[in-house]
Design a protein around this nucleic acid. Structure first.
Length: 215
DNA sequence: TTGTGTTTTACGACCTC
DNA sequence: GAGGTCGTAAAACACAA
């Protein structure tokens, strides 16, 4: 890296916007036209923004992948519980019908209703207790604080979530402009929590915050 | 050497404060 | 009106064949 670029980089590192005074000073110092310094800063900001979008995308994708695996395991658990309930119901109904008295039919209906409620409660309990720290259902997760460093804020709030949605969204690219993000409203706020969780993890690991980042 | 892909520089159009 | 972003053209550079 030559001296000129090095100085410009240093200057950009301290402040990515260029006040007129600083522009003139830098231009004088480097023997450039103020216009050249201004253009350099414009292009540098554009490059930084592209890098930042790439980082945001990588992080969003890894959050999505981990949530998807959480979702899959919860679904498997759910299927397993359903089949267990089915088996138990058969057993119960066999017993009730076998030793039936006068009101055998109504008892069966009652049992059916009770077990249905119990299963529902159990399933909800399973969800609300979280799975391996999943951010999907953790109501205690901190809310997203838009630091202004990430370009997520226009994407994550509108992206449909796998939990509560039957079809998980694709992750091969950022949301297209054609996709207006509209859905049944049951999945809003999904990725905002995801992102906060991921960012917290980032900080816990002692890494640099998502904002300014120098390669 | 050359064709090709990537990066950097510069500019015009448009937007925001 | 000054200074920002965005899109793009052209020059400069890197690198494989």
């Amino acid at each position: 890296m030559n001296r000129t670029v090095h100085l410009l980089e240093k200057s950009f590192e301290t402040e990515n916007k260029l006040e007129p005074d600083r522009k003139t000073q830098l231009a004088k110092k480097l023997g450039l036209q103020p216009r050249q310094v201004a253009v350099w800063f414009q292009n540098r900001r554009a490059r930084w923004k592209i890098k930042q979008l790439e980082r945001d995308y990588d992080q969003l994708k890894s959050s999505y992948d981990s949530l998807l695996s959480d979702f899959d395991s919860i679904r498997k658990d759910n299927d397993k519980l359903k089949s267990e309930v089915g088996a138990l119901m058969e057993k119960l109904q066999g017993k009730v019908v076998g030793g039936a008295g006068v009101s055998e039919k109504s008892e069966v209906v009652e049992l059916d209703a009770i077990t249905t409620v119990q299963v529902k409660v159990k399933a909800e309990d399973r969800l609300s207790s979280g799975s391996g720290g999943s951010a999907v259902v953790d109501e205690h997760s901190p809310q997203l604080v838009d630091s202004g460093d990430s370009y997520f804020h226009t994407v994550h709030e509108e992206y449909p979530a796998p939990g509560g949605c039957n079809i998980p969204p694709p992750v091969d690219g950022l949301q297209s402009e054609e996709d207006d993000g509209s859905d049944d409203g049951s999945c809003h706020g999904y990725f905002s929590n995801v992102f906060v969780a991921a960012e917290e993890q980032h900080h816990e690991e002692g890494e640099e915050p998502l904002g300014w980042f120098w390669s």
